[in-house]
Amino acid sequence: MTEELRCVGCGAVIQTEDKNKIGYTPKSVLEKGVETGEIYCQRCFRLRHYNEIQDVSLTDDDFLGLLNEIGQNNALIVNVVDIFDFNGSLIPSLHRFVGDNPVLLVGNKVDVLPKSLKRTKLKQWMKEQAHEKGLRPIDVLLTSAQKSEELDTLLEMIEKYRNERDVYIVGVTNVGKSTLVNQIINQTAEIQNLITTSKFPGTTLDKIEIPLEDGHSLIDTPGIIHHHQMAHYLGAKDLQIIAPQKEIKPKTYQLNPGQTLFLGGLARFDFIQGEKSSFTAYVSNDLLVHRTKLEKADQFYEKHVGELLQPPRKDEIDDFPELVGFEFSIKEKTDIVFAGLGWITVNDPGVVRGWAPKGVDVITRKALI
């Protein structure tokens, strides 16, 4: 029986197969570590040498244990969600675990939203959606892990609400949580009264504690896997395509009833009934949108998915879920939201249908723009 090797930083069992899981170390690095007698997982190595936190995922059971711990401590909870996948990036049942602890809800990636979108409208919608899920955030904040000026407001909010308590930062995978934490560390390294980053007292298997000046900690937790995220059906290259990197440029289409728009091969929008009208797609600038006739849409998808319609790529379509349709009767200007991709604004009354991979949400909301 092979002896288990463990990371000297966090105690995780070393493995070389999956870089997204706890304990990952590249094989070449492991061999050197065995020679020196000091084996660090990649996460601890980067934390130790670069003050950089990498996201890892926990199993559902592991994360439930962590949530129980949060509920038993007196702390501020900072829940980071993805503005483009709000429902898919909410932690299921978080409200049952936080106890009396306040929750600050942080919508990440605000920098890529069109400037015409009213931030107050978006924050109100996020608050309403959170309430529907049983979560009562003490405040809602929009931020960007990529823009330092947005971080100042986040840090002020954390100080305002933490009241000399620990701060737990939680979120599902792929919401940009670790990028946000790294920005916090870089931004506050020279601020005397906030986060001290000169040394970390050590990491644990399930979280990283960043000491605060008053003896409390900002605690970064691993991302939980939410099984209904669009991101889980895609590879790293395709994630770059669907996740907007720059401000979205809206694409407007004049459609007659009986026409269909494909968002790559990931989603589909059918205009079933109504007067000729304009429809505006708010998706990543790199995601190609194709128009076709509704009556031929099924055959068009079957023929072109993985090639003209991608992502997904041709070698991924065998594992890609079937698209499932949701029909809506529209009375007023409405957004059809494809979780993880963006949305299409329907300007006039009519009947439409939105399609997404099985398990991924298509929902409506009053138009934000």
Rank of each mutant, 00 (worst) to 15 (best):
residue 94 L to F: 02
residue 86 F to P: 04
residue 102 P to T: 08
residue 111 D to T: 07
residue 34 V to A: 14
residue 33 G to Y: 00
residue 128 E to Q: 15
residue 30 L to E: 05
residue 137 P to W: 11
residue 114 P to F: 00
residue 106 V to S: 09
residue 135 L to T: 04
residue 137 P to A: 06
residue 116 S to W: 01
residue 67 L to S: 05
residue 138 I to R: 13
residue 44 C to Q: 01
residue 46 R to A: 03
residue 48 R to P: 09
residue 25 T to F: 02
residue 28 S to T: 08
residue 34 V to K: 15
residue 98 V to F: 13
residue 107 G to P: 08
residue 109 K to G: 02
residue 73 N to C: 05
residue 54 Q to F: 14
residue 45 F to K: 12
residue 43 R to I: 13
residue 123 K to L: 10
residue 29 V to M: 11
residue 124 Q to G: 02
residue 128 E to M: 05
residue 55 D to K: 12
residue 101 N to L: 10
residue 26 P to I: 02
residue 30 L to N: 05
residue 30 L to I: 02
residue 70 I to K: 07
residue 111 D to M: 10
residue 27 K to V: 01
residue 73 N to T: 02
residue 70 I to E: 12
residue 30 L to V: 04
residue 32 K to L: 14
residue 33 G to V: 06
residue 49 H to S: 14
residue 103 V to D: 05
residue 38 E to Q: 08
residue 136 R to M: 10
residue 42 Q to K: 14
residue 117 L to Q: 00
residue 93 S to L: 09
residue 27 K to T: 07
residue 119 R to S: 07
residue 77 I to C: 01
residue 28 S to L: 07
residue 78 V to L: 00
residue 75 A to C: 15
residue 59 T to W: 08
residue 23 G to E: 01
residue 87 N to G: 03
residue 24 Y to P: 06
residue 127 K to D: 03
residue 92 P to E: 06
residue 110 V to W: 06
residue 110 V to E: 12
residue 108 N to I: 10
residue 33 G to F: 09
residue 56 V to N: 13
residue 113 L to S: 00
residue 84 F to Q: 09
residue 111 D to L: 05
residue 60 D to M: 09
residue 22 I to M: 09
residue 21 K to D: 05
residue 131 H to N: 07
residue 101 N to V: 03
residue 81 V to A: 00
residue 74 N to S: 10
residue 44 C to T: 12
residue 96 R to M: 14
residue 100 D to E: 15
residue 76 L to G: 13
residue 77 I to R: 08
residue 104 L to S: 12
residue 23 G to P: 13
residue 60 D to C: 04
residue 95 H to F: 15
residue 48 R to T: 13
residue 119 R to C: 01
residue 75 A to N: 13
residue 50 Y to Q: 15
residue 135 L to Q: 03
residue 88 G to E: 03
residue 101 N to Q: 02
residue 36 T to E: 03
residue 68 N to M: 13
residue 84 F to E: 00
residue 81 V to W: 01
residue 134 G to K: 03
residue 44 C to Y: 10
residue 75 A to I: 08
residue 38 E to Y: 04
residue 112 V to I: 06
residue 121 K to F: 07
residue 61 D to V: 09
residue 49 H to N: 15
residue 112 V to R: 02
residue 51 N to L: 12
residue 25 T to M: 00
residue 125 W to I: 00
residue 56 V to A: 15
residue 65 G to P: 04
residue 45 F to Y: 15
residue 22 I to H: 10
residue 23 G to D: 08
residue 31 E to R: 02
residue 68 N to I: 03
residue 136 R to P: 01
residue 125 W to M: 10
residue 78 V to N: 00
residue 61 D to P: 11
residue 91 I to Y: 01
residue 127 K to I: 07
residue 131 H to Q: 12
residue 25 T to Y: 07
residue 77 I to D: 03
residue 98 V to H: 01
residue 128 E to Y: 09
residue 121 K to C: 01
residue 69 E to W: 05
residue 121 K to D: 14
residue 59 T to P: 07
residue 116 S to E: 14
residue 36 T to L: 14
residue 36 T to R: 03
residue 130 A to Y: 00
residue 25 T to D: 09
residue 107 G to K: 09
residue 134 G to F: 05
residue 29 V to N: 08
residue 31 E to W: 05
